[in-house]
Amino acid sequence: MPPLNLLHLDSSARANSFSRQLSRAFADAWTSAQPDGQYVYRDLAATPTPSIGQGWTEICDELLRQQITDPAQYPAVVHTPAQQDAWAIVRPLLDELLAADAILIGAPMYNFSIPAALKAWIDQVTFPRMSLAPRTFVIAGARGGSYQPDTPRFAFDHHESYLRDFIDGHYGVDDVTFINAELVNTLVDPALEHLAHAHEASVAAATARVPEVVADITERRATS
Rank of each mutant, 00 (worst) to 15 (best):
A155L: 00
V210D: 06
L163D: 11
Q148S: 10
H159K: 07
R164I: 14
P152T: 03
N185W: 11
R209T: 09
D175C: 08
D175G: 08
H197A: 15
D168I: 00
T186H: 03
V173S: 15
G169I: 09
A196V: 09
E200R: 10
R164F: 15
E193R: 14
A204S: 13
D157A: 02
P190G: 06
A181T: 09
D189T: 07
G172I: 05
A208T: 13
L183C: 04
F156R: 04
N185G: 01
G169C: 12
A205K: 12
V213D: 10
I167Q: 09
T151D: 01
V176C: 13
G144E: 03
F156T: 02
E182L: 01
R209Q: 15
L163H: 06
E212C: 08
Y147N: 02
P152V: 02
T151V: 02
D150F: 00
F154M: 01
E200V: 04
P152I: 01
A196T: 15
A198V: 09
D174G: 14
V210G: 02
H194V: 09
A206K: 03
T186C: 11
H170C: 14
S146F: 00
F154W: 08
H159Q: 14
V173N: 13
T151W: 00
V203C: 04
L187G: 03
L195W: 08
S161A: 13
N180F: 02
D165Y: 12
G172F: 09
L195D: 11
F166Q: 08
F178N: 06
D175T: 10
G172H: 08
P190R: 08
A201E: 15
D157H: 07
A191T: 11
A196F: 02
V176W: 09
G145K: 02
R209W: 05
S146Q: 07
V210K: 04
V184C: 06
V213P: 09
V188I: 15
V213G: 10
Y171K: 02
E200W: 01
T177W: 00
Y147W: 03
V214I: 13
A208I: 10
R153Q: 07
A191I: 03
